[in-house]
Amino acid sequence: MLLDAARSAMIELLLFDAPAIEETFQLGLLQRLRYASDLDALWYLRPELVSALAQQLGEREAQLRVLGLSHLFGRRAATHRSNSLVGR
């Protein structure tokens, strides 16, 4: 199922690629990822994941890693004209 694959991939990035980020921020995002109800909810958590990863990896590398998950979002990634990962 795409939902489980996307959720697992995002959690893995958070836990393994940014283990030293601020704990409260990491735990809050981890909880939102775990309890996201659908792919749309996960899709809209991508900017927060980039922000978390950027603390340790830098903005560009964080964006590249999260963009690498786009295939898990099927039509969402294909239909969004802007694949912007910058939060608004």
Rank of each mutant, 00 (worst) to 15 (best):
M1F: 05
L2Y: 06
D4V: 09
A5R: 14
A5D: 13
A9P: 04
M10Y: 13
E12Y: 12
L13W: 10
L13K: 06
F16P: 01
D17A: 11
A18R: 01
P19H: 02
P19Q: 02
P19C: 03
I21G: 05
I21V: 13
E22N: 09
E23S: 04
E23M: 04
E23R: 12
T24M: 01
T24H: 03
T24W: 00
F25Y: 03
Q26S: 13
G28K: 08
L29G: 02
L30N: 08
Q31T: 14
Q31S: 14
R32F: 01
Y35D: 14
A36P: 08
A36H: 00
S37C: 07
S37D: 13
S37N: 10
D38A: 08
L39E: 12
L39I: 12
L39M: 12
D40H: 11
A41G: 08
L42G: 09
W43S: 05
Y44H: 11
L45T: 04
P47L: 06
E48H: 09
L49E: 06
V50P: 05
A52H: 05
A52Y: 03
L53G: 08
L53E: 05
A54N: 10
A54I: 10
Q56R: 15
Q56P: 04
Q56N: 11
Q56S: 15
G58Q: 04
E59Y: 11
E59P: 07
E59I: 09
R60K: 15
R60C: 10
E61N: 11
A62S: 05
Q63R: 12
Q63H: 06
Q63I: 11
L64T: 12
L64Q: 14
R65N: 02
V66E: 05
L67T: 03
G68H: 06
G68E: 02
H71K: 12
L72T: 07
G74C: 05
R75A: 14
R76M: 09
R76C: 01
R76A: 14
R76H: 11
A77N: 07
A77H: 04
H80Q: 09
R81S: 14
R81I: 13
S82P: 02
N83C: 00
N83W: 09
S84T: 07
L85K: 11
L85Q: 09
L85A: 03
G87F: 01
G87R: 07
G87K: 02
